[in-house]
């Protein structure tokens, strides 16, 4: 059914990525070292950006690698020339200053070459940007609302049908919250979920999403400006009061992906993480049905599930 359209969605950026991959490989083979250790959540000693887990998240990753490679090459040439000059043309080695101070040919060359490099980079970046801007064809809509200092997620529609009354607040988990208090005496290294340290990166209720589904996010805020960022998705988008921003993702792999608010939003800005639990479509269908059922009989009883219909329609 929908998987066909997902493939088409994924094909465009995928082809672009192939070219970029080739460029990246040609320009900076040393980057393979960093690329090999890319993973979804931050790791101790991590040196490079994550490759991410979505159909689009490779765009920023490869742009980052290509641009870094270009910069390293230019740096080696320019700084190399400078160090040669500093070695060869020292007064202590008896260098006599020359008189020239102008050379039109080299000036044209070193103006033109950067222009060409920039044009290549701009071309690659534009492709990634255009594919990101296309939020059409989404099979699911999630409304994200920022609050000081927690997130609210509302499931708006799924597979073309409106979702009724599934929405909840998501805030920092209790253990992290206790540990992070000044003078708590608790050890941040002891905050673990399984083997993973989740200090300040865990929430009470994660956002559950299906994989292989193009999901459209509409992002806004109820108080100050926040920014919704999961590095594994490859983008962040500001949550601004009075404005609804949109973005999309299409997750390839099931897993738990962690992020944080990225726009200074007051004293607890550092303590409003984001956790996305990506599950298979079957598991998601079961989870959504259970949520709908739980909320249906007594919607007023669960304040956390305030009606999505009451969500600020005026914002649209």
């Amino acid at each position: 059914m929908t998987s066909g359209s997902i493939r088409t969605d994924g094909a465009e950026p995928g082809r672009g990525l192939g070219i970029k991959r080739a460029v990246a490989a040609a320009l900076a083979p040393m980057l393979a070292l960093c690329a090999g250790i890319a993973q979804a959540n931050p790791e101790p000693g991590q040196l490079n950006m994550t490759r991410g887990v979505t159909t689009w998240s490779g765009e920023p990753y490869f742009l980052n690698n290509v641009a870094l490679g270009v910069c390293v090459v230019i740096g080696i040439v320019v700084f190399g020339a400078m160090f040669i000059a500093m070695f060869r043309f020292r007064k202590s080695r008896g260098a006599v200053p020359e008189k020239w101070s102008h050379n039109t040919t080299v000036e044209i060359i070193w103006t033109a070459i950067p222009v060409l490099i920039l044009m290549a980079l701009a071309w690659m970046a534009t492709g990634g940007l255009v594919s990101f801007a296309d939020t059409t064809g989404a099979q699911m809509t999630i409304k994200v609302t920022g609050y000081q200092w927690k997130w609210r997620y509302d499931y708006v529609d799924y597979q073309g049908k409106p979702v009724s009354k599934v929405g909840f607040m998501s805030r920092l988990d209790e253990l992290s919250d206790k540990t992070r208090q000044l003078g708590s005496g608790m050890d941040p290294y002891a905050v673990k979920t399984g083997n993973e340290n989740t200090y300040l990166l865990n929430v009470d209720k994660p956002l559950v999403l299906p994989i292989h589904t193009k999901i459209r996010f509409v992002i806004t805020s109820e108080d100050v400006i926040h920014s919704w960022w999961v590095p594994a998705f490859g983008w962040k988008m500001d949550a601004i009061p009075g404005i609804v921003n949109s973005a999309w993702t299409n997750i390839n792999e099931a897993g738990t992906y962690r992020g944080q608010c990225a726009e200074l939003c007051g004293q607890d800005h550092g303590f409003m993480p984001i956790v996305v639990k990506a599950v298979s479509q079957e598991d998601f269908n079961k989870w959504l049905a259970a949520q709908e059922q739980a909320n249906a009989p007594a919607p007023a009883a669960t304040p956390a599930a305030a009606s999505t219909a009451a969500a600020p329609a005026g914002h649209g």
Partner: peptide, 15 residues
């Protein structure tokens, strides 16, 4: 690059 936001007073042990 690993994902640490600016202007935060505290961070995960990965950083």
């Amino acid at each position: 690059l690993a994902g640490m936001p600016r202007r935060i007073p505290d961070y995960n042990v990965a950083f």
